[in-house]
Amino acid sequence: MVREYKRKTDRGTFCREDMQAAVDDVINKEVSLRKAASEHNVNYKTLSRYVEMKIKTDIPENHSFGYQKTRQVFTEEVENELVDYLIAASKIFHGLTMEELRELAYELAEANKITMPDSWAMNKKAGIEWARGFVGRHGADISLRSPEATSLQRMSSFNKHNVNMFYDNLGEVMKKGFTPDNIWNIDETGVATVQAPTKQIAKKGERRVGAVVAQERGTLDDSLLWHQCFWEPYSSVFYIP
C-alpha cells in the first residue's frame, strides 16, 4: 500500500464546475462532445463518461463531479474529539502510544457500531496505516513525541503550595549573604531513577511532554529519595555548609 502517493502528471484532473457546464451543454444544448470539451477545457473521453453516467443514472443537479474523498472510518467530528482526548491525556502525563491509539480506535468503533475494516475486528485494533494517516491528518495539532520520564513523587510534589514554600525558604537563606562558593547544585542529573517511556502522541509545539512512571528503577537511599520527592521538581539550588 502506497502511504503517501504523489501525482506525477495532471492527467485526469479537471474543474468540477467546467465539467458540470460541459455535461449540461451536451445534454441540454445538444453540443457535440469534442466542441463542449474544447470550450470548457476538459477531456472529451472523460466528458463522454460523465454524460453517459448522467443519462443512465439520472445524476442529481447538486452532484459533485470528480473524484470523491476516500471514505474514513470516523467522521471529522469524531476524529476531532479523539484529538482533544489525546491532548488532554498527554497533559496529565498519560499520553497514548501509537499502539494504544490503535486499540482505542477499535474500541471506539466497536462501541459505537461504526463500520470498520475486517482487519480491525481480526486484530482487535486499528491498522498502523490508519494510525499514521490519523496523525498526519491532524499534524497541525498533534505529533509523536519522546516524553520526559516523570515519577509519581514529582507529580505529587510539584504544586503551588510546595513551590511557594521553596521560594520563601530560598529567599530567607539567600538573605544570610552566602558567597557563590558555598552554593551547590545537587540535583541528580545524569542518574537514571526511572525507566525511559516510549514515544507518545502529544500536542504539537508543546515545550515539555511528560509521561508518568509508576515504579522507580532500583532503590535509592533515604537522603536521595527525600531529595527527589521534594527538591527535584524545582531544579533546586540551595546552600550546603
Score class of each variant (00 low, 15 high):
residue 2 V to H: 07
residue 5 Y to S: 10
residue 6 K to S: 11
residue 7 R to V: 15
residue 7 R to Y: 14
residue 12 G to T: 08
residue 12 G to M: 14
residue 12 G to K: 03
residue 20 Q to V: 14
residue 25 D to E: 09
residue 30 E to F: 14
residue 31 V to F: 04
residue 34 R to W: 06
residue 35 K to Y: 05
residue 36 A to P: 08
residue 36 A to W: 01
residue 37 A to I: 05
residue 43 N to V: 11
residue 45 K to S: 15
residue 47 L to K: 02
residue 49 R to D: 06
residue 51 V to S: 10
residue 51 V to R: 04
residue 52 E to Y: 04
residue 59 I to A: 06
residue 59 I to K: 04
residue 63 H to A: 15
residue 63 H to V: 13
residue 63 H to C: 09
residue 69 K to I: 11
residue 69 K to F: 12
residue 71 R to G: 08
residue 71 R to L: 09
residue 71 R to M: 09
residue 77 E to T: 07
residue 81 E to G: 06
residue 81 E to I: 09
residue 83 V to Q: 01
residue 83 V to P: 01
residue 84 D to V: 13
residue 84 D to R: 02
residue 85 Y to H: 02
residue 92 I to F: 06
residue 94 H to P: 09
residue 99 E to I: 08
residue 101 L to I: 03
residue 102 R to T: 01
residue 104 L to H: 00
residue 104 L to C: 01
residue 104 L to K: 00
residue 107 E to W: 02
residue 107 E to N: 05
residue 108 L to I: 07
residue 109 A to T: 01
residue 112 N to K: 01
residue 112 N to W: 01
residue 113 K to C: 08
residue 113 K to G: 06
residue 113 K to N: 06
residue 114 I to G: 00
residue 115 T to H: 06
residue 117 P to N: 02
residue 117 P to C: 03
residue 118 D to F: 04
residue 120 W to V: 00
residue 121 A to C: 07
residue 121 A to G: 14
residue 126 A to S: 03
residue 127 G to T: 07
residue 128 I to W: 03
residue 128 I to H: 05
residue 129 E to L: 04
residue 130 W to R: 00
residue 132 R to M: 01
residue 136 G to V: 05
residue 142 I to D: 00
residue 145 R to E: 05
residue 146 S to Y: 00
residue 148 E to A: 12
residue 151 S to D: 05
residue 154 R to Q: 15
residue 154 R to L: 09
residue 157 S to H: 06
residue 160 K to S: 12
residue 162 N to T: 09
residue 163 V to P: 04
residue 167 Y to A: 12
residue 168 D to S: 11
residue 170 L to E: 11
residue 172 E to S: 15
residue 174 M to I: 11
residue 174 M to A: 10
residue 175 K to W: 15
residue 177 G to N: 06
residue 178 F to C: 14
residue 180 P to A: 05
residue 182 N to I: 14
residue 183 I to E: 07
residue 186 I to L: 12
residue 188 E to N: 14
residue 189 T to L: 13
residue 192 A to S: 09
residue 194 V to K: 10
residue 194 V to I: 14
residue 196 A to T: 11
residue 198 T to E: 04
residue 198 T to V: 11
residue 200 Q to T: 07
residue 200 Q to H: 05
residue 202 A to T: 05
residue 203 K to A: 10
residue 203 K to N: 07
residue 204 K to S: 14
residue 204 K to L: 15
residue 205 G to T: 11
residue 205 G to H: 10
residue 212 V to Q: 12
residue 213 V to A: 13
residue 218 G to E: 03
residue 221 D to T: 13
residue 223 S to A: 11
residue 226 W to I: 13
residue 227 H to N: 15
residue 227 H to W: 12
residue 228 Q to H: 08
residue 230 F to S: 07
residue 233 P to W: 04
residue 234 Y to H: 09
residue 241 P to S: 05
